[in-house]
Amino acid sequence: MGIIKSCFSFIAGTVCGIYVAQNYNVPNVKKLADSAFFIAKHVEENYRKPKNKDDD
């Protein structure tokens, strides 16, 4: 009974996640993260301060 009690929230979350993924239009999290990373990289490259020649 101990393993069922300790894993109940994990099993319930998995079942609810499967139901939501099958019945609703859930966005692809990996695709969203990749696009956010690309935008952040683009912004960082465009607004970076230029290097000073005196620092070298």
Results as ranks from 00 to 15, higher is better:
Pro27Arg: 00
Asn23Gln: 10
Asn28Thr: 08
Val15Arg: 02
His42Ala: 14
Glu45Gly: 04
Glu45Phe: 05
Arg48Asn: 05
Lys5Tyr: 09
Ile18Gly: 01
Val15Glu: 00
Lys51His: 06
Tyr47Pro: 00
Asn52His: 08
Ser9Tyr: 07
Tyr47Ser: 09
Ile18Phe: 06
Val43Glu: 10
Ala36Thr: 14
Cys16Tyr: 05
Ala12Asp: 03
Thr14Trp: 10
Lys41Cys: 06
Lys49Gly: 01
Ser35Ile: 15
Ile11Trp: 10
Tyr19Phe: 09
Ile4Met: 06
Leu32Arg: 08
Tyr47Thr: 15
Val43His: 12
Ser9Arg: 07
Ile18Val: 13
Phe37Cys: 04
Ile3Leu: 07
Asn28Ala: 04
Ser6Asn: 01
Met1Asp: 09
Lys53Val: 10
Ile11Tyr: 08
Phe10Glu: 05
Ala33Tyr: 03
Gly13Glu: 03
Asp34Gln: 10
Asp55Val: 09
Gly2Met: 12
Gly17Ser: 13
Ala40Asp: 13
Met1Thr: 07
Val43Gln: 10
Ala33Asn: 03
Lys53Pro: 02
His42Lys: 11
Pro50Cys: 11
Gly2Tyr: 01
Phe38Tyr: 07
Asp55Arg: 10
Gln22Ala: 05
Val20Asp: 00
Gly13Leu: 03
Arg48Pro: 01
Val15Gln: 00
Asp56Lys: 12
Ile3Met: 04
Tyr19Pro: 02
Phe38Asn: 06
Tyr47Asp: 01
Gln22Asn: 12
Lys41Asp: 06
Lys53Gly: 04
Ile3Trp: 05
Gln22Gly: 05
Asn52Tyr: 10
Val29Gln: 08
Lys5Thr: 13
Met1Ser: 07
Phe8Tyr: 14
Leu32Ile: 11
Val20Gly: 01
Gly2Leu: 11
Val20Thr: 07
Leu32Val: 13
Lys41Val: 04
Val29Ser: 09
Phe37Pro: 00
Lys5Phe: 14
Tyr47Gln: 09
Asp34Arg: 04
Glu45Asp: 14
Ile18Met: 05
Val43Leu: 15
Asn46Met: 14
Glu45Lys: 11
Arg48Ala: 15
Lys49Cys: 08
His42Phe: 15
Asn28Ser: 12
Ala33Thr: 09
Lys49Leu: 12
Val43Thr: 09
Asn46His: 13
Val29Tyr: 12
Lys31Gly: 02
Tyr24Phe: 14
Ile18Pro: 00
Asn25Phe: 00
Lys30Glu: 15
Ile4Glu: 03
Val26Leu: 14
Cys7Trp: 02
Cys7His: 06
Val43Phe: 15
Asp56Phe: 15
Gly17Ile: 02
Ser35Asn: 08
Cys7Met: 12
Gly13Pro: 00
Ile18Thr: 08
Val20Pro: 00
Lys41Thr: 13
Asn23Met: 06
Phe10Tyr: 09
His42Cys: 09
Phe8Met: 02
Leu32Pro: 02
Phe38Ala: 14
Arg48Ser: 14
Met1Ile: 05
Pro50Ser: 13
Thr14Lys: 03
Phe10Trp: 10
Gly13Ile: 02
Ser9Val: 09
Tyr19Val: 01
Phe38Lys: 13
Glu45Ile: 08
Asp54Phe: 09
Glu44Asp: 12
Asn25Asp: 12
Asp34Ile: 11
Lys51Thr: 03
Asp54His: 08
Lys31Met: 11
Ile3Ser: 05
Ile18Tyr: 00
Met1Ala: 08
